[in-house]
Design a protein around this nucleic acid. Structure first.
Lengths: 198, 198
DNA sequence: AGCATTTATCAACGCTTGTTGACTTTTACC
DNA sequence: GGTAAAAGTCAACAAGCGTTGATAAATGCT
């Protein structure tokens, strides 16, 4: 690499031509992984979508597993719920999840892959363990891991039925209807006292 | 086929040797589809599990898709909830789901496959449309399709987190704990008035 | 213009997959 | 025992996969 080029890049003054290719690959990968799952999404198809040669994918991402790892990078971007009344936390959370799911293909890709790919499953587990549970800890409730799991079960169940399986009655619900139905559920999972054990 | 043999089979007096093989294939198929999903479960692996030749699978089931169709045949066996108080319907349903999920590998196979295979997804949709919604119709509530969808979203979400992703906090819950948490949710989905539309 | 580095292309590899057809063994009846 | 049907074995196929290495084109600096 030439010295002036290096300097320019270090100062963030330019972008390489290859950056466009990398981004195109990543976008195509997310789309394919999201639509087809890990094993049916082929590198050849991803490359075709990005209008490049399959060898470029290997050049930039090493192998399929690493490509998926890059494509499945995701931040839930959970906001602070400090200003939200305790009885409405669930509603706010459902609303946030809906926009986050529909914003890009990453979560769909992650979920579809996680069902048949162990690496993706581990990623999914860590997503909730490292992003959801800590937020609940801030909300000062007990057993944050269990509550995070319960929230995940309903949130992922909704996503599964709505975006993956496309079960008619669920897929057709408006955002407001989903919030009205699932909000109280999440609120209860977040704030209700732990059930007395048998 | 010889005439006496035919007579014996027609009278249900005997079973062919091939019936054992067919059953072994089906059991192995359910296990593999449940553990690996549709595309990663290979006919060769299924045949190896059943200790037979891969060609036998084709002989008895035609092709992979038909094998899956046979392996994914499932009856939810929902009981009548007539004798159950309206506030406890959810609990009873959750308990039933738990035992049904853990009873055999079929549901796990169906769910894992449905995420990446359109035929399996359609099967899953019909499972709920033809077995869950009608039961709700008997319970005399309105909008049975939507309520069935909501129940499905929480039931499948639980199954996903507990049996597929194996998210620790959810997988470790006892039956009673799951019932205590999810029961009221399902009860509300089944009996609460529809939310007022915006 | 000349040259070195980056970017892209191409053809091929080794492997696994679903599936097939020819062949052999076992079974059950006359 | 002989024989026809059923059950099982074997080797091979065409296709698709991830991946690789040699090679060509494009780029940007001196």
């Amino acid at each position: 690499m030439k010295s002036q080029q290096v300097l320019a890049y270090a100062l963030g003054m330019a972008e390489r031509k290859s950056d466009r290719t990398r981004a195109a690959i990543l976008a195509a990968a997310r789309e394919r992984f999201g639509a087809d799952g890990y094993e049916r999404a082929t590198i050849r198809a991803i490359a075709a979508d990005a209008a490049i040669d399959p060898a470029m994918v290997m050049r930039y991402y090493g192998n399929k597993e690493k490509l998926f790892a890059a494509a499945a990078e995701f931040d839930l971007r959970l906001p602070d719920f400090d200003g939200v009344p305790r009885e409405e936390v669930g509603e706010a959370m459902v609303r946030h999840f809906l926009t986050r799911w529909e914003g890009d293909d990453t979560l769909r890709a992650l979920l579809r892959a996680a069902v048949t790919n162990e690496v993706a499953a581990e990623r999914m587990r860590q997503l909730f363990a490292s992003q959801l549970a800590p937020t609940l800890r801030e909300l000062a409730v007990d057993a944050p891991a269990v509550r995070a799991g319960l929230v995940a079960s309903q949130a992922l169940g909704l996503a599964l039925c709505r975006y993956i399986l496309e079960i008619g009655p669920i897929a057709k619900l408006s955002h407001d209807e989903v919030v009205a139905w699932l909000g109280p559920t999440l609120t209860r999972y977040l704030t209700a006292p732990l059930p007395t054990q048998a």
